[in-house]
Amino acid sequence: MSAGPLIEIKDLRIRFHGDDGRITHAVDSVDLSVANGATLGLVGESGCGKSVTSLAIMGLLPKQSSEISGAIRFDGFDLLKTADQTLRDLRGNRLAMIFQEPMTSLNPSFTIGDQIIETILRHRGGSRKGARDRAIALLRRVHIPSPERRIDDYPHKLSGGMRQRVMIAMALACDPQLLIADEPTTALDVTLQAQILELMRELKAASGAAIILITHDLGVVAEVCDEVAVMYAGEIVERAPVDELFSAPQHPYTVGLLGSIPRLDRRAEQLATIEGMVPNMAQPPAGCRFAARCPFVLEACTKAPPPLVEVSPGHVSRCIRAPLELVVS
């Protein structure tokens, strides 16, 4: 591991301009960094801004309707100020992404081989024969049986789990330094999910790439991540090493999330619930965005937005009542 982080996001803000002139604050003052070889889990519920953050890193947000500010530093570049041509050189090469839906993210009218080879030729050049050999090796690496034959198959001939493997093979084609996986196993059955998670762990150990894993499944996070950032209503509300987040969370939202999942290792009579609704992001509340649903709320919470405070080394929480142990004891 090198000293500085591989990717560093500073004060990222993303706003969308709707057709009706309404402005939605999708992401607000997000700070993140990932070191070489580390895996960061980005957790939150639908609409919390986790996918939008990843699309901003990849430079895939629509230019006309979105307004992005802040900085995303990756290996000497500021990705938000980089020219499109340079971004295209980075994407698929040193930055790669796996999407949730393997059914819709592969082109149905080309063989999977063509699609992997295209990536290799675009970034690495060389002969088509060489690229094909590399594509076969990649398919073997993600455990696709008889890759020499499979490489000429069209996506519709593969099952969901196989397609997700092809997506991973394609993402790995040029040995990326940063891999963003957006809900890579959500569309899959549990037995296939276990296979894909195993594969991701294996590949991470072999390649040393950094991974940002976006998911709503805290079980997946506990299994593969080193560090976790929890997002709520466009903000990071808590960031901690994985062990600490699961044993002593410091934001009420994280506590609610952990209490609300049914677990195999415990049978609860009643699951915890988070009452109320996510605030309307066209007019975010003045104070803490979770205040309306928080059981530990104080009057001060609704007055001003709480800062991110460090509770212990590497563990930050956007809650003025942290450390929460003091609140409950």
Binding site: F246, S247, A248, P249, P252, V255, G256, L258, G259, Q270, A272, T273, I274, E275, P295, F296, L324, E325, V327, V328, S329
Partner: peptide, 15 residues
């Protein structure tokens, strides 16, 4: 963990 159990209990009680 003991801490988490306490936090979740407090969270549920209050709501």
């Amino acid at each position: 963990s003991p801490t988490l159990a306490k936090l979740i209990a407090a969270f549920s009680r209050k709501t």
